[in-house]
Nucleic acid binder design. Structure first.
Lengths: 339, 339
DNA sequence: TTGATCCACGTAAACGTTTAAGTACCACAA
DNA sequence: TTGTGGTACTTAAACGTTTACGTGGATCAA
């Protein structure tokens, strides 16, 4: 592989001169710079990132912690989309990304060790078990960190507005005349708890009395569990006129239960999802839901992280909230009479 | 950051001794080895991958070319799942992965240059425009390469059995009594052309005469375009009894058209997808489709690539075909009478 | 003429490893 | 005694960069 030494030899200059010419230093004459660039092209020189990293202590590599225990991997649209936009922004800024795992060189290591081994400039925690001590060790290390949907003290974070999102959804269906509103929420995490909080807040503001049976839990990303929960709701003596579902994917289980009961959407019952998954928008009618701004979440995570890497002193560890928006599909009817 | 030099000083040995101890060389006494490991733990030493790479010419980093022009990113389940299993297998073997792009250090470069800059040990082309000269430059470079769903001369490849898959689907619906079989295929790529070939082969073997109107194209990953194509099929004087769709996602457009026409699935019309997307299995009835073995595709791509990296002479550049399987959902009726 | 200034380049050390080759010491056989 | 062989290290060079500092020559003012 051709190195700077070869270029230097070819051009009859020192290695330092080649380095400076390629890095745009000012104390190189236009003539020799030209000569060097020509030689680089002709001989097919490519810089060696490892050597550069060794010398400069900068790898231009960002770590991503993306551990999902259920092993849906990139199949979860919310994370996939956020990850994608994180990647795009990183690349735009000249950074590559590396997934952090615990298998460095055939031996089991901690996430932090992996990050240190690769000398990552920074780390984004996109998806992980935040209770895991190994995750916390990484977050509270000396490496610049940004977390998604979880806020840590003195660490940067981007947060989707889960509480406001659910609040807005309740207000929306209320505005269309619904009073008997049920909520099938996902099993407890920081995210679902925030949504639940939003639900309560809206109910309080609207002075809505929601019976206990209207609030049920279902397993995250498990349509079958949602199917059962929906069935129970429909079997109530006084069933809800509108059901909020934990997320667009799980909702499919609910849809099956509703179809099976011979009910039409939205004529007989209204439904609302959460996420803005593509597929649910291809259905007829498209699902009314809350679309999280994944594009912005990923982009911001990357740019905040890079900011903290490149300007450690000026960039404070903020917690930024990204707002989503209502996707008004066709699954919420307008009720004229109030019960 | 603590380096080998610090460890050496602490233990009163040379740097070479530390290196050899850590790398499991045999000419180190058990005593000093112990001392060194203790110092490593106490002082918190982590090896520097850049320095190691510089010296050994091995980065234990695999490149992934994953360029989708439509920018669905990881949202496409087939690629997402394959990528995920590729990643898992790579990590199991001690490799990290790096996405190849064209933005190295703020300047526009070729894919090959990026790969060379990072000194990637090998590259997997998961998703890309294979006509692109920059992609071909990468594939025909000196770097070990494996491609997905495209075979190149003297290069390793893993291929999903698109032809057999579609052939099997036709045989399946034929076996259930269908004769008027339509196929809405995706716009031409190597993949869709193979599927179309499978369709023709099955028709030939079964001596099926398919009218021209039964074969229509629709835009890849565009439910709306599939919606229109389906509508046209349903409006024919003699509509098909079964429609094969290009893929599970696009099929949703077809589903809407069918629902809109007031037809029931599978009582009034049968449908078949391709891919085995999770969501389509959550519908009721679950879609009958061909499930590509993404887990195996990704795993094999990684292990073949690593094999070629670690044993360049013994590992020949094979083309391996991975077979999928029929997912028998509930969307194909059994026809008793033949038309 | 001298001395200051500037330009364009060279020198050399350093980053943290790996590894071929060398060496000091000891044990043991002849 | 000498020679041989093995063990457990050390030495030193090398990988490809970057960068602080040095330097020789040209220019120019006094």
């Amino acid at each position: 592989m051709v190195s700077m030494k070869d270029i230097a030899q070819e051009c009859g200059v020192s290695v330092a001169t080649v380095s400076k010419a390629l890095n745009g230093q000012q104390d190189i004459s236009e003539q020799t710079r030209q000569r060097i660039f020509e030689a680089v092209k002709e001989m097919g020189y490519t810089a060696n990132s490892a050597a550069r990293a060794l010398k400069t202590n900068r790898t231009y590599n960002l770590g991503i912690l993306f551990i999902d225990l259920q092993n849906h991997g990139f199949m979860h649209e919310y994370f996939a989309a956020t990850l994608n936009s994180f990647r795009i922004e990183s690349e735009r800024c000249g950074y590559d990304i590396t997934f952090i795992n615990s298998n460095v060189g055939h031996q089991n290591t901690s996430y932090l060790q992996h990050a240190m081994y690769r000398r990552l400039d920074g780390v984004a925690v996109i998806c992980a078990d935040y209770q895991d001590p190994l995750v916390q060790e990484l977050i509270y290390s000396d490496i610049p960190v940004v977390t998604l949907d979880h806020a840590f003290y003195n660490r940067a974070a981007v947060l989707s507005d889960n509480m406001n999102g659910l609040e807005a959804l309740v207000h929306y269906v209320y505005g269309r005349g619904h009073r008997r509103i049920a909520y099938i929420y996902g099993n407890p995490t920081a995210v679902t708890e925030n949504r639940l909080r939003g639900f309560y807040r809206a109910c309080e503001a609207l002075e809505l009395k929601i019976p206990d049976e209207y609030l049920t839990e279902c397993e995250y990303h498990e349509p079958a569990s949602c199917y059962r929960a929906t069935k129970q709701l429909l079997a109530l003596p006084e069933p809800p006129t509108c059901i909020l579902f934990s997320d667009d994917y799980t909702w499919l289980g609910g849809m099956n239960a509703i179809r099976e009961a011979g009910l039409r959407i939205p004529e007989d019952i209204s439904v609302v999802g959460y996420d803005g998954v593509h597929l649910a928008q291809a259905l007829n009618p498209p699902l009314t839901t809350w679309q999280q701004n994944t594009e912005e979440l990923g982009r911001l995570a990357a740019s905040m992280l890079i900011e903290r890497i490149e300007h450690p002193r000026t960039a404070a560890p903020e917690h930024v909230v990204v707002t989503g928006r209502l996707l008004e599909g066709g699954t919420v009817s307008r009720l004229d009479a109030e019960p």
